[in-house]
Structure formats: C-alpha cells, structure tokens
C-alpha cells in the first residue's frame, strides 16, 4: 500500500466573472489590468487533494497522504494562486516562471508535468479537466498518455479501495460511469466533485512563509516551442433580436420569407 504523493497542477486564468475582450491586434484577449484568479476546475483539484488528506466524506486513502505539491507554470503573478493553494492545504509549491504574455500549449504543459512527476515521484496527479481560458481539455489526457498511466477524466467522485485501486465516477453525457484503475494515475476534475473552501486570513499569512521553489522551463528540459499558430481572434457576432408576429398568418408568411416552410 503506497502512500500518496499528490501533484496538483494549477493555472492562473482570467476570472470567470470578467467579460473578456479581444485586443486591438486581434491576436488574443486583453489581459492587462484584468482580474485573474485560479482556474475554477483547478480549484476543485486543490480541494480534492486536501479532502483526501483530511479523510473526509469517505475519501480515505489506505496508504495515507505523504505530500501534496502544487505546481504552476505562468507569469510571476501565478505565485499568488500557488500561495492560496498552500493556504488551502498543499505542502509545497513549484513555480515555473514564464515571461508575461508567454503561453504554453497543452502538449508543452503535459511534457513539463511529466518531467515534474518524475522528479517529484508523484503517484497521483489531480488536475482540472480544462482551463476556462483556452478550454482545450487536453493536458490531463496528454499527460496520462506520455506517462503511460491510466486516466480518469471528468471525475465527480473518487474512492480508494484495497491494493492501490481507485474508483472514479465520471460525468458523461446523460449520466455517470465508474472506472477503476490502480495507482499511479491521472484524474481530471469536473464541477460536481466537491465544494472548494475559502482560505482564512491566518492561513494565508502562514502560507507566505511556506516553501515555494522557483524553476525555469530549462530546469525540466522542456522548450516552450509552439506548434499551433493563432491566426485571428474575433468576438462572436452580436445576437440578432427576435421579432413579434401579430397572428398565425403573420407567422406563416414570416416562416415562408425565411424559407423554413
């Protein structure tokens, strides 16, 4: 029965409540002066790791939890979300510093995470199913592929069994499905997994003194080279307003006009 070494990769994204705007050059969205926060799906994974350690709600891991390590690759400000993760229950944090505006593709992130997993000897990776900025939903799957580990995506329930077995209930179209695999494995979280807590002020203060390692991409032997090129980013067309018809005849003539009948 192996003790869990959980890796929780998190990402700093534009806050969900912000209305995003396309920048003037149409190369991406405006990020300067916009409120950022932790990706909500990653928030769930931080919480789940903590719950597993606290052994709450039947999430008991037989081997116990040895360590929870939070990880983020991003601009210097990504440290803020790492500190919050530390306040909420992570033991250590690793920050791979990127320049402002530099962005990694899911494949690069997966390669980077693979290197981190190998260095940290993690045996469980819990990450958000997707980030709310790129919405790629690829990193977890690619990471599992690169590592050759089983993966359970869109988890809404995680249970630990005998002999390193883990049962994960997944959200699928129109219901749920349960898969079982042995550690090590990769799990991606879905919205209903848990209810993330708020870090209290004293814990945030304590988290400021907790260990946070700074690394670079080169430390892990990963290059941030791009395989995809963004050609153009545009806003969706504004919605056309609906019209009212007086009576049935009006409706029929309108439908004929539109070629629907």
């Amino acid at each position: 029965m192996s003790a869990l070494r959980i890796l929780v990769p998190i990402k700093r994204v534009i806050d969900y409540a912000v209305k995003v705007r396309v920048n003037k050059a149409q190369t991406g969205v405006e990020t300067a002066g916009v409120k950022h926060s932790i990706n909500p799906f990653d928030d769930l994974s931080v919480e789940e790791a903590t719950l597993i350690r606290e052994e709450k709600l039947g999430r008991r891991a037989p081997g116990g939890v040895e360590e929870i390590c939070a990880f983020s690759a991003g601009p210097p400000k990504a440290q803020e979300i790492l500190r919050t993760a530390l306040a909420r229950g992570a033991d250590r944090a690793i920050h791979v510093e990127l320049k402002e505006g530099e962005d990694l593709e899911p494949l690069s992130v997966a390669k980077l995470l693979k290197a981190v997993v190998e260095q940290q000897k993690s045996n469980l990776v819990i990450l958000g199913k997707q980030s709310i900025d790129d919405d790629a939903n690829q990193t977890g799957q690619m990471l599992a592929g690169l590592l050759g580990w089983p993966q359970a995506t869109q988890a809404c329930k995680i249970e630990f069994g005998e002999a390193d077995a883990v049962s994960v209930t997944q959200e699928i179209d129109g219901g749920t499905q349960t898969v079982r695999a042995k550690l090590p494995m990769v799990i991606t979280t879905d919205l209903r997994l848990n209810e993330p807590r708020f870090a209290t002020l004293p814990k945030i203060m304590k988290a400021k003194k907790m260990p946070l390692e700074k690394k670079t991409l080169a430390d892990y032997g990963v290059s941030g080279e791009k395989r995809l090129k963004v050609l153009k980013v545009i806003e969706p067309p504004p919605r056309q307003g609906g019209g009212k018809v007086e009576n049935v005849d009006g409706l029929i003539s309108k439908l004929k006009e539109l070629g629907a009948i």
Binding site: Y16, A17, P40, I132, L191, E195, P196, R197, F198
Partner: peptide
C-alpha cells in the same frame, strides 16, 4: 458570503459547460 461566492461561480460554470 462564502456560500454566495461558491454558488455564483458554480452556476456560471454550470451554465457555460454543462
């Protein structure tokens, strides 16, 4: 207030993704 924040975010995400 914590419940308000949680529900606000949960509902927004549910509407967007589910």
């Amino acid at each position: 207030i914590e419940a308000l924040y949680y529900l606000k975010r949960y509902r927004a995400l549910k509407q967007r993704y589910n």
